[in-house]
C-alpha cells in the first residue's frame, strides 16, 4: 500500500485543498499523517486556519476517530542546512556556508538542488521510524508542484545520481529514487471537468508512466450537480415557454403575461440553462476521456460557499468513502 501520496494537478484545480483533505482522510481512525508543502505558499496554513507554518513538523488537525494530521512547509534553505546537519553533522559549518553564499547558490542559482532537497525531505519522513521501530507517519501527503513540472520534479534525483556518480549525494539520490519509484509512492492528479486540466492530466499520466513513476488516482474536483440537459432546455424553448411562465407565476414570481415579471424571467433563465446544458455535455465528454486513462477516479463535489475548515472535513469524509483501504 502506498505511504507517500504525491498530489499534483494543473494550477487552479484545488491541488492544495485535495492534498489537505486526503491527509485528513488518511489520518482517520487513529492514524497519523504528515502533510508536506513544497511551494512556499502557506496554502496549508490558510486552509487549516492557522498562522504561517514554520519549518517544523507540527500537529495542525485532529481527524475523526482520533487521528492526527501534522504539517510541514519545507523551506529549501532550511532543508539544505538540515540535510547538511543530518548527513555530515555540520552545525556551524552550515552557517558559514550560508555566509559564503553557498546556500543561495544551492537553492536558487542551482535550482535543481531545491527539488532534490524537497523530495529528499519528504522521503526521509516516509522512511522515518520511531524508537518502537514503527513508522512515525502512516502516510505522507505532498502538495506537489503542478502537472507540468511533476515528472521532472520527481525525477530530479535520478538526474543528480547521474551527475554525482559516486559519494554521499549519489547514494542519497539513489535512495530517494528507490522510494519514489516503488509501490510505496502514488502520484495523484487533481483535475476539473474542463478541457485543459483533463488534457494536462492525460499528458501528465503518460509522462509519469514513461518514466516509470507510480501513478495513483485522478481526483475530479469541484463537481457540480447536473440539473438540466440540452433536451430539457429545448423542451422549454420549443413550446413550453408559456407554460413555464405560468408555472413561475404560480410560484409567486409575478405575472405570466407579456411584460410580467415571470414572463420576463423565462428568457434569461433559459439562457442560463443553455449554458448549463452546454457545460453538462462538455463535462460528459471530459469524464469519458478520464475514464479512458485506466486509473481509479474519485470525485469531490463543489462546495458552493468556498472552502472553510468544515468544508475541508466534508471533502475528507467524501474522499475516505471512496479511497481503497
Amino acid at each position: 500500500m502506498s505511504r507517500l501520496h504525491v498530489v499534483s494537478g494543473k494550477g487552479g484545480t484545488g491541488k492544495t485543498t485535495v492534498a489537505a483533505a486526503l491527509a485528513l482522510a488518511l489520518a482517520a481512525d487513529g492514524r497519523r499523517t504528515l502533510l508536506v508543502e513544497v511551494e512556499g505558499r502557506q496554502g496549508i496554513a490558510q486552509l487549516f486556519e492557522t498562522g504561517p507554518l514554520p519549518y517544523e513538523e507540527r500537529k495542525i488537525a485532529t481527524a475523526p476517530g482520533g487521528g492526527e494530521v501534522h504539517a510541514l512547509a519545507i523551506d529549501p534553505e532550511f532543508a539544505l542546512l538540515d540535510y547538511l546537519h543530518m548527513f555530515y553533522k555540520l552545525g556551524s559549518a552550515g552557517r558559514a556556508l550560508k555566509k559564503l553564499g553557498a546556500i543561495d547558490f544551492a537553492t536558487t542559482i542551482a535550482p535543481g538542488l531545491r527539488d532534490v532537497l524537497l523530495t529528499g525531505k519528504a522521503c526521509e519522513a516516509v522512511r522515518r521510524k520511531g524508537k518502537d521501530g514503527r513508522f512515525v507517519y502512516d502516510s505522507v501527503v505532498m502538495d506537489a508542484p503542478p502537472t507540468g513540472r511533476i515528472t521532472r520534479f520527481l525525477n530530479v534525483n535520478h538526474e543528480v545520481a547521474g551527475l554525482a556518480r559516486t559519494g554521499p549525494i549519489h547514494n542519497q539520490a539513489q535512495a530517494v529514487m528507490r522510494v519514489l519509484k516503488s509501490p510505496q509512492t502514488a502520484v495523484h492528479m487533481v483535475t476539473l471537468l474542463e478541457e485543459m486540466p483533463v488534457q494536462e492530466t492525460a499528458d501528465g499520466i503518460a509522462e509519469l508512466r514513461a518514466d516509470g513513476l507510480p501513478t495513483g488516482g485522478v481526483i475530479i474536483n469541484m463537481v457540480r450537480p447536473a440539473i438540466l440537459d440540452h433536451e430539457a432546455v429545448e423542451v422549454v424553448a420549443n413550446g413550453q415557454r408559456t407554460a413555464v411562465a405560468k408555472a413561475l407565476s404560480r410560484a409567486g414570481l409575478g405575472g405570466a403575461r407579456r411584460g410580467g415579471m415571470a414572463e420576463r424571467l423565462v428568457d434569461p433563465l433559459l439562457e442560463q440553462a443553455r449554458e448549463h446544458a452546454e457545460r453538462v455535455a462538455l463535462e460528459r465528454a471530459q469524464r469519458a476521456e478520464l475514464t479512458g486513462l485506466g486509473v481509479p477516479l474519485h470525485e469531490l463535489e463543489l462546495l458552493t460557499d468556498g472552502i472553510d475548515l468544515a468544508g475541508l472535513y466534508r471533502l475528507a469524509a467524501d474522499l475516505r468513502k471512496q479511497w481503497p483501504e
Partner: peptide, 25 residues
C-alpha cells in the same frame, strides 16, 4: 435529468418541474 420519453401526468406538472429546474440553476 428530464427524460422526454416519460410522459408527464399533465402538461402543467411537466412545466412546473422544468420551471423548478430553471429556478434551481
Amino acid at each position: 435529468a428530464v427524460d422526454p420519453d416519460v410522459s408527464p401526468t399533465s402538461a402543467d406538472s411537466s412545466a412546473e418541474r422544468l420551471a423548478a429546474g430553471l429556478l434551481r440553476l
